[in-house]
Amino acid sequence: MFKRIVALCIVAVAAHGLAAAAPLNVAATTATFADLVKTIGGDYVEVSYIAPPKFNVHFIEPRPSDVMKVKKADAFAHAGLDLELWSAPLRDAAGNRRVMKGGAGDLDLSRGVALLEVPDRAVSRAEGDIHLFGNPHYWQNPANARIMAATIAQKLSELDAAHAADFAKKFATFQAKLDAKIAEWQAKLAPYKGQEVIGYHNEWPYLMQFLGLTMGQFLEPKPGIPPGPKQLGALTDYAKSDKVRGIVTSVYYSDKATKTLSKNTGLGFVTLSQNVGDVPAATDYFAMFDYNTEQLAGLFAGGK
C-alpha cells in the first residue's frame, strides 16, 4: 500500500513537472507580434498568428482553425485599438475567457505606447475608415518596440513566473540590439531627413516619425477608399511642386494606381514591409527595418 502511495506521489510530481515545463501557448494577430513574442519568450512559448503576412490586417476573415488557435491560447497578443476589428468575434467564437478583454492572457500591445493621430473631436465615417483611438500601426516605430517588448516580458512573467528571469534576460538582449539598430537605421536615412513621400494608405506615420521623414498625401483620397482619377490628378499636380521624393506602398495594395502616379510624375516607388513576412527579406522584426530603411535610402538616392 505504502509503495503504491509513493509511486502515485512520484507520478503526480512528475506530471506536475511536465505540466510546468509545457511552453506557454500564445496566439498573435500578426506575424510581427508573433515574432516579438517569440523573441522575448524563446523556447518557453509556442506562438501562432492569425493574419497571413501578405494580407491587410484590417480585413482578415478568421477561419475555424484560427478559432482553435485562440481557444487553446494562454495569451492573445494583439494591437488593441481598432486595427483588428475581427479579433472580437474571433475571441467570442473561441470562448476562451483567459484571453477575453481584460483576462489574464489578454496581451494588448498598445499599452503605454504614445499614439499618433488620436482624434481630438467626434469622428464620422464620412471621413473614411479612420481609427477612433489613433493610428494603430505603431510597431512601425522601433522605439515603440521597447514598450511592446516590455509589455510582452511582463505578461509572460505573470503567466510563467518560473521563467521570469529568462524573459528578462531576453528582453535586455533585445533592447541592446534594438538600441544599436535604431542608431544604424536612423544614420542610414539621416541625409534625407525632412524629405517627403506619398503613401498609398496612411499606415506609415510611426516610421516617418522615427526616420524624420514626411508623408502628408495619400493615394487613397480618404482612408479605405480606393484611389480614383481625381485623386491621381491632384497628386500629380502636388508632385510637380518638387517637394515629393517618392511613393510608398504595401504588398496588399494593387500597384496599378501607384504605377500610374509614378509614370505621371516620374517619381520612384517602393513597396515597404508592413509586417514580418510580407516580403521575403522581412524575416523578423529587425530584418523588416533593415529592408525598409534600405528601400527608402535607395528611393531617395535614386531621386526623381
Binding site: 522605439a143 516590455a150 516580458a153 511582463q154 521570469a164 528571469a165 524573459f167 528578462a168 535586455a172 533592447q175
Partner: peptide
C-alpha cells in the same frame, strides 16, 4: 517589466 533596465 521584470528586467534590470526599464524601457527607455
Amino acid at each position: 517589466p521584470p528586467v534590470a533596465e526599464s524601457p527607455a
